[in-house]
Simulated assay, not measured.
Amino acid sequence: MNKIGLYFGTFNPIHVGHLIIANYMVEHSDLDEIWMVVTPHNPFKKKSSLLENHHRFELVYKATESYKNIKPSDIEFKLPQPNYTVYTLAHISEVYPDKEFSLIMGEDNLKSFHKWKNYETILEHHQLYVYPRIAKGEVEHQFKNHPKIHTIDAPIVQISSTMIRTGIKNKKNIKPMLTKEVWEYIDEMNFYKK
């Protein structure tokens, strides 16, 4: 059975930090592929700077095109909003019954995982692959040494999409933080400049 790691994000925009983590996960764990799941507009985030879903998907597509084991996914675009991860996992497992899906998350998300909707159901049916993040707070005791939670010692990447959007707005050179294809699309479309 094919093991797929689902890496969720708004990817606004996708940057080399996302690719470093996704590539590390596929190379240094038992996952066969990583699907970059572009999440639709989140009701908790300020919308003004968020590119439309199809543009963010296009950026992820361009960024991952040359990686055979990293693929873009727009599976959440078709689900009712607001959506919860537990519903996406149920839906994707139904659509692809021949694949085994795991969640990829930063350590910061694991610290608040006990607040996720039906997190027990997620853990019952799926593995979690956690990459390190510099963040305050403690991981809940119940998640330490949990048989379904795997800590992957991926590099800590301190690049954020916010930093990139701010840089573009302030006319800074942020090219090293993006793939060439992503930078060219953003530049050509005049994204994040205002």
Rank of each mutant, 00 (worst) to 15 (best):
M1P: 13
N2Y: 08
K3T: 10
I4W: 00
Y7Q: 00
Y7G: 01
Y7W: 07
G9P: 06
F11C: 07
N12V: 04
H15Y: 05
V16A: 02
V16R: 14
G17C: 06
I20Y: 01
I20C: 08
I21M: 05
N23I: 00
Y24R: 00
Y24W: 12
Y24H: 14
M25G: 00
V26L: 01
H28V: 04
D30S: 08
L31A: 01
W35C: 00
M36G: 04
T39D: 11
P40M: 00
N42S: 12
P43E: 15
F44P: 03
F44G: 01
K46A: 11
K46F: 11
K46M: 07
S49F: 12
S49Q: 13
N53F: 15
N53Y: 15
H54E: 14
H54R: 02
K62I: 02
A63P: 10
A63R: 00
S66I: 09
Y67R: 03
N69C: 06
K71D: 09
K71I: 05
P72T: 11
E76T: 07
F77W: 08
K78M: 12
P82F: 01
P82Q: 06
P82T: 12
Y84P: 02
V86D: 08
V86K: 07
A90C: 08
H91M: 03
V95G: 12
Y96E: 13
Y96F: 15
P97L: 01
D98F: 08
K99F: 13
K99E: 12
F101A: 00
S102Q: 10
E107R: 07
E107W: 10
D108A: 07
N109L: 14
K111W: 08
S112V: 13
K115V: 03
Y119H: 15
E120G: 01
H125Y: 15
H126S: 08
L128D: 05
P132G: 08
A135R: 06
G137K: 04
V139M: 11
E140C: 08
H141M: 12
H146K: 04
P147H: 11
P147C: 03
I149M: 02
I149Q: 11
V157L: 11
Q158C: 14
Q158H: 11
I159T: 13
I159A: 02
S160T: 15
S160Y: 03
T162N: 09
T162H: 08
M163D: 15
R165K: 13
R165P: 05
R165E: 06
I168H: 03
K169P: 03
N170V: 05
N170E: 15
N170W: 09
K171R: 14
P176S: 09
P176M: 07
M177R: 01
M177V: 05
K180Y: 14
E181R: 03
V182R: 02
E184P: 01
I186T: 11
I186W: 03
E188T: 14
E188K: 14
N190V: 02
K193P: 07
K193N: 14
K194I: 10
